[in-house]
Design a protein around this nucleic acid. Structure first.
Lengths: 195, 195
DNA sequence: AGGCTAACTGAACATTCGTTCAGAAAAAAG
DNA sequence: CTTTTTTCTGAACGAATGTTCAGTTAGCCT
């Protein structure tokens, strides 16, 4: 046997990516074998190499794709222009967007150490760009006298870390709706940056 | 050759644990081989099995040991009895303690998925106990009218996530001293839980 | 109908993995 | 000094790893 029924590049390619995404998030990059990914797709291990140069490139591609999507989504969002409204937009956007892609987020934050130095630098630059988006908002608020912060850089990291925490515990169908969670977090963030 | 000069169970045991700790934190449990740990200790791979039943037990032991130490250290701490003072104590304790053991923390939060179901439950229970310590403080503050929180459970998780964020970026010798960092975070936490 | 090519199989490759164990040597006990 | 015990070596085990590739077939084109 060789080429199987209904096989198609357009289909197999994305399926490899989504299978890898799910498995990497579940078990970690190093713990997932190429054969495991192939099995999930329903194909032999060797077939993957028609789509990826090697395992590490697959990881990089997943991470880089995710980071670029986050940035693009934030850029594309319609935003108010006062700092307070911007910050609320960011908080709600971050929680909503990241909750919809918890696997991608998990990988992007956990598998950095499995990247080569060069690839690491690539991803790190993208993450910094996203952090800068928030810091810009905070700086604007400080200048306008709306926020009181001794250090916008630390505040940026603190807020993002806090928001990322949602993904470690929130499960849809739980006690609170996603909208309620957004509001609770926005409340805490707002208070933490104002006087 | 067999037993080498100066070999001693009392020495090799801890050295295995600390080598494993360092390597697991650096590269992840799944990516570190038993032979790598052995090399770091300066011993052959087989020798490790005089000290551990298997690789997984080593991971569990490291995680469990850490969690118990955190809990014990918090219990042993001398604390004020008003909620505000307690919360400040917790924030400063958490940052200081966890910064001194960043490897342990990293492992305890990242390698949960490499644990068997039973072992996972053990660690999860210990983590919950620590979270409860903070939630108790928050509840006390809410009852006393000092804190304003719609949901102490979420607030607990949000605060811990925020504090844990320090470890992803703080490096000693940087722009701020650990004490200053503590103060900045305490400021944000205090404001986020009060009106 | 027949040929072409894209898509996949299945076997093989050298390495590495976690783990076991008989035996050797150092340290402790007598 | 001799014996016992503790601690480690070195080789071996089968299984699994990432990756390559010649061969086979399904779907498209003419």
């Amino acid at each position: 046997m060789a080429r199987t029924q209904g096989s198609h590049s357009d289909i197999t390619g994305p399926r490899i990516r989504s299978a890898a995404l799910k498995l990497f998030a579940q078990q970690g990059y190093a713990a997932v074998s190429v054969r495991q990914i192939a099995k999930e797709v329903g194909v032999q291990a060797g077939a993957l190499y028609n789509y990826i140069p090697d395992k590490q490139s697959l990881l990089l591609s997943l991470m880089e794709g995710h980071m670029r999507e986050v940035l693009a989504a934030w850029e594309a969002l319609e935003k108010p222009d006062d700092a307070m409204g911007l910050l609320e937009s960011f908080v709600r956007f971050h929680i909503r967007f990241h909750m919809q892609r918890s696997d991608e987020v998990f990988i992007a934050y956990m598998e950095l150490r499995n990247l080569s130095d060069e690839n690491f630098a690539t991803i790190e630059a993208l993450r910094r760009a996203y952090e800068d988006a928030l810091e810009t908002v905070l700086k604007q608020g400080v200048e306008a006298g709306q926020f009181t912060l001794p250090d916008t850089k630390i505040a940026t990291l603190a807020v993002i870390a806090m928001l990322n925490g949602v993904m470690t515990w929130y499960r849809s169908g739980g006690r609170l709706s996603l909208d309620e969670v957004e509001t609770v977090y926005w409340d805490m963030v707002r208070k933490s940056v104002t006087t």
